[in-house]
Protein backbone atom coordinates (compact mmCIF):
# COMPACT_ATOMS: atom_id res chain seq x y z
CA UNK A 1 0.00 0.00 0.00
CA UNK A 2 1.42 3.38 -1.05
CA UNK A 3 1.32 6.39 1.19
CA UNK A 4 1.15 9.71 -0.65
CA UNK A 5 1.04 13.11 0.97
CA UNK A 6 -0.58 15.94 -0.96
CA UNK A 7 0.92 19.39 -0.43
CA UNK A 8 -1.83 21.32 -2.17
CA UNK A 9 -5.37 20.82 -3.38
CA UNK A 10 -4.24 20.72 -7.03
CA UNK A 11 -1.75 18.08 -6.13
CA UNK A 12 -4.40 16.05 -4.32
CA UNK A 13 -6.94 16.38 -7.13
CA UNK A 14 -4.38 15.35 -9.73
CA UNK A 15 -3.54 12.24 -7.75
CA UNK A 16 -7.20 11.40 -7.20
CA UNK A 17 -7.84 11.79 -10.94
CA UNK A 18 -4.99 9.45 -11.80
CA UNK A 19 -5.78 6.94 -9.10
CA UNK A 20 -9.49 7.08 -8.29
CA UNK A 21 -9.18 3.96 -6.11
CA UNK A 22 -6.75 5.61 -3.73
CA UNK A 23 -8.25 6.32 -0.30
CA UNK A 24 -7.97 9.90 0.92
CA UNK A 25 -7.14 10.04 4.60
CA UNK A 26 -7.99 12.94 6.89
CA UNK A 27 -8.31 12.05 10.58
CA UNK A 28 -8.13 8.37 9.77
CA UNK A 29 -10.71 7.58 12.44
CA UNK A 30 -12.99 5.76 10.01
CA UNK A 31 -10.46 4.65 7.47
CA UNK A 32 -7.92 3.05 9.77
CA UNK A 33 -10.65 1.13 11.58
CA UNK A 34 -11.86 -0.26 8.26
CA UNK A 35 -8.32 -1.21 7.25
CA UNK A 36 -7.65 -2.76 10.64
CA UNK A 37 -10.75 -4.91 10.41
CA UNK A 38 -9.68 -5.83 6.88
CA UNK A 39 -12.96 -4.49 5.47
CA UNK A 40 -11.15 -2.53 2.78
CA UNK A 41 -7.79 -2.86 1.10
CA UNK A 42 -7.06 0.38 -0.74
CA UNK A 43 -4.13 0.41 -3.14
CA UNK A 44 -2.82 3.49 -1.40
CA UNK A 45 -3.52 6.30 1.03
CA UNK A 46 -3.62 9.95 0.04
CA UNK A 47 -2.91 12.05 3.09
CA UNK A 48 -4.89 15.31 3.01
CA UNK A 49 -3.73 16.72 6.32
CA UNK A 50 -1.21 19.07 4.69
CA UNK A 51 -3.62 20.53 2.15
CA UNK A 52 -4.10 24.17 3.19
CA UNK A 53 -7.39 24.58 1.30
CA UNK A 54 -9.02 21.95 3.55
CA UNK A 55 -7.55 23.02 6.85
CA UNK A 56 -9.53 26.10 7.83
CA UNK A 57 -12.92 27.71 8.03
CA UNK A 58 -13.90 31.18 6.86
CA UNK A 59 -16.98 33.34 6.70
CA UNK A 60 -18.28 35.55 4.01
CA UNK A 61 -21.71 37.15 3.69
CA UNK A 62 -23.23 35.18 6.55
CA UNK A 63 -22.15 31.86 5.05
CA UNK A 64 -19.49 29.78 6.72
CA UNK A 65 -17.23 27.53 4.70
CA UNK A 66 -15.70 24.73 6.77
CA UNK A 67 -12.75 23.04 5.11
CA UNK A 68 -13.21 19.28 4.92
CA UNK A 69 -10.18 18.75 7.15
CA UNK A 70 -11.28 20.88 10.11
CA UNK A 71 -11.53 18.56 13.12
CA UNK A 72 -14.55 18.42 15.43
CA UNK A 73 -12.54 19.88 18.29
CA UNK A 74 -12.16 23.14 16.37
CA UNK A 75 -15.79 23.24 15.33
CA UNK A 76 -16.74 22.94 18.99
CA UNK A 77 -14.35 25.59 20.25
CA UNK A 78 -14.51 28.06 17.35
CA UNK A 79 -17.96 27.71 15.80
CA UNK A 80 -20.23 27.03 18.77
CA UNK A 81 -21.81 30.44 18.40
CA UNK A 82 -22.21 30.58 14.66
CA UNK A 83 -23.27 26.99 14.16
CA UNK A 84 -24.71 25.70 17.43
CA UNK A 85 -26.35 22.61 15.90
CA UNK A 86 -23.19 21.35 14.23
CA UNK A 87 -21.15 22.16 17.33
CA UNK A 88 -23.55 20.20 19.52
CA UNK A 89 -23.41 17.28 17.12
CA UNK A 90 -19.62 17.48 17.13
CA UNK A 91 -19.60 17.37 20.90
CA UNK A 92 -21.40 14.01 20.83
CA UNK A 93 -18.89 12.40 18.51
CA UNK A 94 -16.69 9.78 20.14
CA UNK A 95 -14.09 10.92 22.66
CA UNK A 96 -11.69 13.89 22.93
CA UNK A 97 -8.97 11.95 21.11
CA UNK A 98 -11.22 11.19 18.13
CA UNK A 99 -12.63 14.72 18.09
CA UNK A 100 -9.10 16.06 17.78
CA UNK A 101 -8.61 14.12 14.57
CA UNK A 102 -11.98 13.29 13.05
CA UNK A 103 -13.42 15.66 10.45
CA UNK A 104 -16.75 16.54 8.91
CA UNK A 105 -15.22 15.77 5.51
CA UNK A 106 -14.45 12.24 6.61
CA UNK A 107 -17.88 11.85 8.17
CA UNK A 108 -19.51 12.92 4.89
CA UNK A 109 -17.31 10.74 2.72
CA UNK A 110 -18.12 7.68 4.83
CA UNK A 111 -21.78 8.67 4.40
CA UNK A 112 -22.92 6.35 7.14
CA UNK A 113 -26.55 6.75 8.16
CA UNK A 114 -25.21 7.14 11.70
CA UNK A 115 -22.71 9.95 11.00
CA UNK A 116 -23.42 12.56 13.63
CA UNK A 117 -22.64 15.63 11.57
CA UNK A 118 -25.30 14.74 9.01
CA UNK A 119 -28.52 15.58 10.88
CA UNK A 120 -27.11 18.97 11.85
CA UNK A 121 -25.96 19.66 8.29
CA UNK A 122 -29.42 18.68 7.00
CA UNK A 123 -31.24 20.88 9.49
CA UNK A 124 -29.06 23.81 8.42
CA UNK A 125 -29.49 23.14 4.69
CA UNK A 126 -25.76 22.86 4.24
CA UNK A 127 -24.08 22.44 0.89
CA UNK A 128 -21.24 20.06 0.18
CA UNK A 129 -18.39 21.41 -1.93
CA UNK A 130 -16.84 18.79 -4.22
CA UNK A 131 -13.77 19.30 -6.37
CA UNK A 132 -11.94 17.42 -9.07
CA UNK A 133 -9.55 18.28 -11.86
CA UNK A 134 -12.74 18.87 -13.83
CA UNK A 135 -13.82 21.68 -11.52
CA UNK A 136 -15.75 22.47 -8.36
CA UNK A 137 -19.46 22.00 -7.63
CA UNK A 138 -21.80 22.49 -4.68
CA UNK A 139 -24.57 20.11 -3.79
CA UNK A 140 -27.34 20.39 -1.15
CA UNK A 141 -26.39 17.91 1.54
CA UNK A 142 -29.76 16.17 1.22
CA UNK A 143 -28.79 15.23 -2.34
CA UNK A 144 -25.33 14.14 -1.32
CA UNK A 145 -26.44 10.92 0.42
CA UNK A 146 -27.54 8.34 -2.12
CA UNK A 147 -27.61 5.08 -0.13
CA UNK A 148 -26.10 3.25 2.82
CA UNK A 149 -22.52 4.47 2.86
CA UNK A 150 -22.93 5.82 -0.66
CA UNK A 151 -22.74 9.41 -1.81
CA UNK A 152 -22.93 11.53 -4.93
CA UNK A 153 -19.18 12.11 -4.93
CA UNK A 154 -17.56 10.90 -8.17
CA UNK A 155 -14.52 8.64 -7.96
CA UNK A 156 -12.19 11.46 -8.99
CA UNK A 157 -13.72 13.98 -6.57
CA UNK A 158 -12.65 15.10 -3.14
CA UNK A 159 -14.88 16.74 -0.60
CA UNK A 160 -13.33 20.13 -0.05
CA UNK A 161 -15.77 21.86 2.29
CA UNK A 162 -19.27 22.34 3.61
CA UNK A 163 -21.10 25.65 3.45
CA UNK A 164 -23.69 26.64 6.04
CA UNK A 165 -25.50 29.86 6.75
CA UNK A 166 -24.67 31.32 10.10
CA UNK A 167 -27.46 30.49 12.56
CA UNK A 168 -30.27 33.03 12.70
CA UNK A 169 -32.22 31.11 15.32
CA UNK A 170 -31.81 28.35 17.89
CA UNK A 171 -30.58 24.91 16.88
CA UNK A 172 -30.45 21.62 18.72
CA UNK A 173 -28.95 18.20 18.25
CA UNK A 174 -29.64 15.10 20.34
CA UNK A 175 -28.51 11.54 19.92
CA UNK A 176 -29.48 8.31 21.61
CA UNK A 177 -26.81 5.75 22.37
CA UNK A 178 -26.72 2.88 24.82
CA UNK A 179 -24.00 4.46 26.86
CA UNK A 180 -23.34 7.97 27.99
CA UNK A 181 -20.32 8.75 25.81
CA UNK A 182 -18.29 7.27 22.95
CA UNK A 183 -21.19 5.66 21.24
CA UNK A 184 -22.50 5.34 17.73
CA UNK A 185 -25.98 6.66 17.49
CA UNK A 186 -28.97 4.39 17.79
CA UNK A 187 -30.81 7.37 16.37
CA UNK A 188 -30.24 11.12 16.28
CA UNK A 189 -32.20 14.22 15.54
CA UNK A 190 -31.41 17.83 14.81
CA UNK A 191 -33.72 20.80 14.49
CA UNK A 192 -32.99 24.39 13.49
CA UNK A 193 -35.27 27.39 13.47
CA UNK A 194 -34.64 29.79 10.59
CA UNK A 195 -36.67 32.89 11.52
CA UNK A 196 -35.01 34.93 8.76
CA UNK A 197 -36.92 32.88 6.20
CA UNK A 198 -39.68 31.58 8.49
CA UNK A 199 -38.53 28.00 8.00
CA UNK A 200 -37.71 25.01 10.12
CA UNK A 201 -34.94 22.52 9.33
CA UNK A 202 -34.65 18.93 10.53
CA UNK A 203 -32.27 16.03 10.16
CA UNK A 204 -32.60 12.39 11.21
CA UNK A 205 -29.70 10.04 11.80
CA UNK A 206 -29.70 6.22 11.93
CA UNK A 207 -33.30 6.34 10.91
CA UNK A 208 -33.20 5.26 7.29
CA UNK A 209 -30.68 4.02 4.70
CA UNK A 210 -29.43 7.60 4.47
CA UNK A 211 -29.56 10.56 6.78
CA UNK A 212 -32.76 12.41 5.86
CA UNK A 213 -35.00 15.34 6.61
CA UNK A 214 -38.51 15.13 8.03
CA UNK A 215 -39.94 17.44 5.40
CA UNK A 216 -43.56 17.21 6.48
CA UNK A 217 -42.62 17.96 10.06
CA UNK A 218 -40.62 20.99 8.92
CA UNK A 219 -43.48 22.33 6.82
CA UNK A 220 -46.05 21.63 9.52
CA UNK A 221 -44.17 23.49 12.21
CA UNK A 222 -43.16 26.39 10.01
CA UNK A 223 -46.78 26.66 8.86
CA UNK A 224 -48.11 26.66 12.42
CA UNK A 225 -45.62 29.29 13.54
CA UNK A 226 -46.41 31.48 10.57
CA UNK A 227 -50.19 31.13 10.72
CA UNK A 228 -50.23 31.80 14.46
CA UNK A 229 -47.95 34.77 14.00
CA UNK A 230 -45.53 33.28 16.44
CA UNK A 231 -42.29 34.09 14.61
CA UNK A 232 -42.84 37.73 15.54
CA UNK A 233 -44.90 37.21 18.67
CA UNK A 234 -43.50 34.13 20.32
CA UNK A 235 -45.79 32.43 22.83
CA UNK A 236 -45.54 28.95 24.33
CA UNK A 237 -45.88 26.23 21.70
CA UNK A 238 -49.22 24.46 22.03
CA UNK A 239 -48.86 20.88 23.25
CA UNK A 240 -50.79 19.65 20.22
CA UNK A 241 -48.24 21.21 17.89
CA UNK A 242 -45.35 19.63 19.76
CA UNK A 243 -47.05 16.25 19.71
CA UNK A 244 -47.86 16.45 16.01
CA UNK A 245 -44.31 17.52 15.21
CA UNK A 246 -43.03 14.46 17.09
CA UNK A 247 -45.39 12.19 15.20
CA UNK A 248 -44.34 13.58 11.85
CA UNK A 249 -40.67 13.17 12.66
CA UNK A 250 -41.23 9.57 13.74
CA UNK A 251 -43.25 8.98 10.58
CA UNK A 252 -40.42 10.29 8.43
CA UNK A 253 -38.15 7.53 9.69
CA UNK A 254 -37.76 4.21 7.91
CA UNK A 255 -35.58 2.47 10.45
CA UNK A 256 -34.40 -1.13 10.64
CA UNK A 257 -33.80 -3.66 13.39
CA UNK A 258 -30.09 -4.06 13.88
CA UNK A 259 -27.53 -4.86 16.49
CA UNK A 260 -27.79 -1.35 17.97
CA UNK A 261 -31.55 -1.18 18.35
CA UNK A 262 -34.95 -2.13 17.05
CA UNK A 263 -36.90 -0.21 14.44
CA UNK A 264 -39.73 0.34 16.86
CA UNK A 265 -37.41 1.77 19.50
CA UNK A 266 -35.88 4.11 16.94
CA UNK A 267 -39.23 5.39 15.78
CA UNK A 268 -40.37 5.88 19.36
CA UNK A 269 -37.14 7.59 20.43
CA UNK A 270 -37.11 9.95 17.42
CA UNK A 271 -40.55 11.15 18.44
CA UNK A 272 -39.32 11.81 21.97
CA UNK A 273 -36.20 13.60 20.75
CA UNK A 274 -38.22 15.69 18.31
CA UNK A 275 -40.64 16.83 20.99
CA UNK A 276 -37.91 17.67 23.46
CA UNK A 277 -35.54 19.44 21.08
CA UNK A 278 -38.28 21.50 19.48
CA UNK A 279 -39.33 22.52 22.98
CA UNK A 280 -35.79 23.61 23.80
CA UNK A 281 -35.35 25.58 20.59
CA UNK A 282 -38.69 27.25 21.05
CA UNK A 283 -37.91 28.12 24.68
CA UNK A 284 -34.72 29.71 23.55
CA UNK A 285 -36.40 31.54 20.70
CA UNK A 286 -39.19 32.87 22.87
CA UNK A 287 -37.12 33.72 25.94
CA UNK A 288 -33.76 34.47 24.33
CA UNK A 289 -32.24 32.16 26.89
CA UNK A 290 -30.28 29.16 25.76
CA UNK A 291 -30.87 25.93 27.60
CA UNK A 292 -27.99 23.74 28.52
CA UNK A 293 -25.74 21.76 26.16
Amino acid sequence: MDFLRAASLDDALATKAQRPDIAPIAGGTDLMVAINFDHIRPSGLLDLTSVPELADWSESGGVIRIGAGVPYARIISELGEHLPGLAMASRTVASPQIRNRGTVGGNLATASPSGDAHPALLACAAEVELASVRGTRRLPVAEFFTGVKRSAAEPDELITAVHLARATGPQQFAKVGTRNAMVISVCAFSVALHPDRAEVGTGLGSAAPTPRRAVEAEEFLAGELTSRGMWTDPRPLPETVVTRFGELVAAAAAPIDDVRGTASYRRHALGVLARRTVGWTWDEYSTGRQTCA
Binding site: R91, A174, V176, N180, A293
Partner: peptide, 19 residues
Protein backbone atom coordinates in the same frame (compact mmCIF):
# COMPACT_ATOMS: atom_id res chain seq x y z
CA UNK B 1 -31.07 24.14 38.94
CA UNK B 2 -29.63 24.26 35.43
CA UNK B 3 -28.35 20.69 35.00
CA UNK B 4 -25.00 19.67 33.60
CA UNK B 5 -26.19 17.25 30.92
CA UNK B 6 -23.22 15.01 31.53
CA UNK B 7 -24.82 14.13 34.87
CA UNK B 8 -28.09 13.07 33.24
CA UNK B 9 -29.04 9.90 31.37
CA UNK B 10 -27.74 10.22 27.82
CA UNK B 11 -24.89 12.40 28.99
CA UNK B 12 -23.24 14.69 26.47
CA UNK B 13 -25.52 13.36 23.73
CA UNK B 14 -28.07 15.91 24.97
CA UNK B 15 -31.15 13.73 25.12
CA UNK B 16 -32.76 15.22 28.21
CA UNK B 17 -32.47 18.39 30.23
CA UNK B 18 -34.29 16.68 33.08
CA UNK B 19 -37.52 15.68 31.34
Amino acid sequence: AEPDIRDLPGGAANTTHGE
